Simulated scan of single mutants.
Amino acid sequence: MIIIKNAEVYAPEYLGKKSILLAGGTIEGVYDNLAIPEDFPDIEVIDGEGKLIFPGFIDSHVHIIGGGGEGGFRTRTPEIQLSELIEGGITTVVGCLGTDSVCRNMKTLLAKAHGLEEEGITAYILSGSYQIPVVSITGKASEDIMLIEKVIGLGELALADHRSSQPTYEEFLRIVAEARVAGLLSGKCGIVNIHIGNGRNGVKYLMKMLEETEITAKQVLPTHINRSRTLLDMGAKYAAMGGIIDLTTSFDPDHLEDDEVRAGEALKLLLDYGVDIANIQFTSDGHGSLPKFNDEGEFAGLGIGSVQSLYDEVKEAILTYDVDMEQALKVITSNVADNLKLDNKGRVHKGKDADLVIVDKNTLNIEGVIAKGKKLMMNGEILVKGTFED
């Protein structure tokens, strides 16, 4: 059992100074005053004076077995390590493939998710890659969602990108409908993560789907919406129709496109447009490649996504653009939990999983991470590393 006392709690709504009792991997309660018996065994007390407590962060778009390869085999990015996720305050991660579904495959992705779970955090995966037809474990995307516990949806499928399979609208609609029904039957979100490229069509398929079908707006999740101001404007209109939009926090500071908008600033712009905060979330695209292409579509350079950017851009929104802290935290906690139907995640409430991030009140730097009731980082020191980390 762990008690954290004297810390100010954001659940993500501000609760004030509270005491939190963690027991058996669960939040047993959040209290104004909690008497601690002096002779009660096996209780660790953490003094949170000068600290803020946040829900553990959820990153629903990470290339946990690596991604990339657009510049040849040497540009394949490496697998992620547990300590990288801990440093970023990420206690729940969702893995996906990306461009390459030939040299990287779903079984390896599933195994990596199980490995991260065994090492101490919560991990899920999405079935598929950029391509339609969708690659899967069982041979059918809907069967992956229904029969494999860790598969909660599909993605990332690519649209408006020269690397996509250039699916027709009907092909796209069919796979979204399949994922929706599988989600309903299995009690999962069945969400379809959509990579939106620089192509002129942007989110047009998605807007058409909302206008012409009975499929609900929250069945799809378009990501990379902040890759340009033009796409961000389209995303704002899509969100006004009820759609969720996902802002990517990773960027290459040496190759930032002229029209690219960092996620922290994009969040401020969207809120100023009047977009409901519930319709916005952040993901890192961690360990995905950040390829650059010239006007002919030829490979011109490469960066790599960082999971630490997830919280960095939330801090940027708070400290630079004066976004309210409660609002900013929702895009990596409660909003994501709601979108993915992860009922035990994303909030500091009684009965939720004991996933917490402890930050310094003045700097907002991460100092502690607790996942499933176990300390993974304290006082800025990582206590638990991956099996093969030094």
Score class of each variant (00 low, 15 high):
Ile191Met: 11
Phe40Tyr: 13
Tyr311Arg: 03
Leu110Pro: 00
Gly187Met: 06
Pro291Gln: 09
His349Ile: 10
Asn226Gly: 08
Leu82Cys: 10
Glu44Phe: 00
Gly139Ser: 11
Glu367Trp: 00
Gly48Phe: 01
Gly153Ile: 05
Thr283Ile: 14
Gly48Ser: 07
Val384Asn: 07
Val384Pro: 02
Asp144Pro: 02
Leu267Met: 14
Thr122Ile: 10
Gly25Ile: 09
Gln166Leu: 13
Val102Leu: 14
Thr363Met: 06
Ile43Lys: 06
Thr99Asn: 09
Leu232Asn: 04
Gly288His: 05
Pro253Cys: 10
Ser309Leu: 13
Thr248Trp: 06
Gly56Val: 08
Asp322Met: 06
Leu147Lys: 15
Ile318Asp: 12
Glu265Met: 11
Gln327Pro: 00
Val323Glu: 10
Val348Arg: 03
Ser250Glu: 05
Thr248Phe: 07
Asn198Gly: 05
Val30Thr: 04
Ala11Ile: 00
Gly297Tyr: 11
Glu260Ile: 00
Ile132Gln: 04
Gly128Cys: 07
Gly305Ala: 10
Ala158Asp: 02
Leu231Asn: 09
Ile121Cys: 07
Met106Ser: 09
Asn365His: 07
Thr333Ser: 15
Asn365Glu: 15
Arg200Phe: 13
His255Met: 13
Val94Ser: 12
Gly88Cys: 09
Glu211Met: 03
Ser101Ala: 15
Leu157Asp: 02
Asn226Lys: 06
Glu316Tyr: 10
Ile175Asn: 01
Glu117Gln: 14
Met209Gly: 02
Lys107Gly: 03
Asp324Cys: 09
Gly288Leu: 12
Glu389Gln: 05
Glu119Arg: 02
Val203Thr: 12
His224Ser: 11
Asp100Phe: 01
Thr122Phe: 10
Ile358Lys: 00
Asn33Gly: 05
Gln281Lys: 12
Ile148Asp: 06
Leu364Trp: 11
Lys330Tyr: 08
Glu214Val: 02
Thr26Asp: 07
Tyr205Pro: 03
Asp360Lys: 04
Asp47Ala: 08
Ile332Asp: 06
Gly68Arg: 04
Tyr31Ser: 10
Met241Arg: 12
Glu143Phe: 06
Pro133Leu: 12
Ile121Met: 05
Leu376Ile: 03
Ala266Asn: 09
Ile318Phe: 09
Thr387Val: 13
Thr26Lys: 14
Tyr321Pro: 02
Ile90His: 07
Pro55Ile: 06
Ile318Met: 14
Pro12Asn: 12
Leu232Val: 12
